[in-house]
Computed example of a mutant assay.
Amino acid sequence: MGTIDATASRAFARTAMAVRPGSTGSRVLSAAFRGHVRLYRATGGRIGARMDTAVLCLLTTTGRVSGAPRTHVLGCVLDGEHLAVVASNSGSPEHPQWYRNLVAEPRVRVQIGPRAFTAVARTTSGQERERLWRRALDTAGILEDYQRRTTRQLPVVLLEPVDARGAEVVAALAEPVTGSAGVQRALVAASTVQLAAQLAGQVLALRRGAAFDVALLRWRGRPERIGRDSWLYGTGFSAPVPMMVLQAVSTVRLARAPQPVAARALGVLGTVMVLGYVVERETRAVLRPAGRDPVATPVVATCLATAAVMARWGRRAATRG
């Protein structure tokens, strides 16, 4: 994974580390993750199944109390015909609910892209865990931060397909993500994360009255007009609504088929948004150490980092399309 892409992933992951359970930020994140699951399913994994070379899967467990199916998006580590996932829970003191569920009922359902299969989950230990843990760190270095944050050892769970069909699905993932298709998938994934973070930023700005404030051009909105201004000028934490609509349309079009025009549009939008975040007073304020905010700072950092990814990968996808 490239440096900018790793930065974006780390920024988004730090959002989960920064928010408190039950807070507004926590509710926004939960809504974003639920939306990710729905988008993944609705598009058969065309959107949401990859972040550059990292593989994301849908893991469905059986609720140990309710008995109902519970689905989460998780990063995967390939291990031959098996997959491994890490029960990090963003470094929280407690294991995630999905891990508790699979301990009670190891039979799970895994979806990768459009294909799904049944697997049996097993918590690894000893040298096997250490080997898989090192491989997981190669894909998601943020796991080291999670481990330092808690005293519990983060469980590494091996997902073993119950039949040959599941093994075939996993084996297909070993094919490298290269060329224009890989670049486009990376761009779609980055834009999806960026758009979700922007929507969270807009909601936050509307609640706080954080109007746009571009000191360089002496443009400044008023809190009482933030709703109307968000359409033309954006807010202190998000781009104008028409830009977000264009971003959403271009992302969906690129997810459906290679389209240099859509890729170029996302690249241009990413560049414009990076410039916008740099000159916006509200953004600069929450990114400074003295102005760190438990909700706004991680949201804005995610917006800025993923916009940088869009600017970079948009140009590459357009030229390779």
Rank of each mutant, 00 (worst) to 15 (best):
A121Y: 14
A257D: 01
G126H: 12
R281T: 12
G91T: 01
A197Y: 02
A68K: 11
A301V: 02
E81N: 04
A239C: 12
Y40K: 06
V85A: 02
T123V: 10
A116E: 15
H72D: 06
A257T: 01
L266Y: 08
G25F: 05
S180F: 02
G182Y: 02
L154T: 05
L199G: 11
A6D: 13
G91E: 00
A6I: 11
T192K: 07
V156E: 05
P298C: 09
I4R: 11
A265W: 06
V162F: 08
A263Y: 09
A285F: 10
V55E: 10
V120W: 12
A318W: 05
G276A: 04
A296H: 05
G141M: 01
G113I: 00
A140V: 10
L217R: 13
E130I: 00
A308N: 06
V169N: 07
N89P: 08
P298Y: 06
P260N: 10
T283A: 14
R135F: 09
R225I: 04
R165S: 09
D79W: 00
T283L: 02
V28S: 05
T150I: 04
G113C: 07
L132E: 06
A257S: 12
S92F: 09
Y277C: 13
R70Y: 14
A171C: 04
V19S: 08
A305E: 04
V170Q: 08
L78Y: 01
R281N: 10
L59P: 12
D145N: 06
F33W: 12
L158A: 11
L29K: 06
M17D: 14
G67C: 07
R134E: 13
T192M: 09
M1V: 12
A181L: 09
G234L: 06
E144F: 10
A263K: 07
A49F: 03
G321N: 08
R10P: 15
A6M: 09
P21C: 03
V188Y: 09
E130P: 01
G2V: 00
R115M: 10
A263T: 11
H95V: 03
V156W: 03
P96Q: 04
L216M: 12
R220T: 05
G141E: 10
A257P: 04
R312H: 13
G113V: 00
Q198L: 15
M244W: 07
G166K: 00
G113H: 03
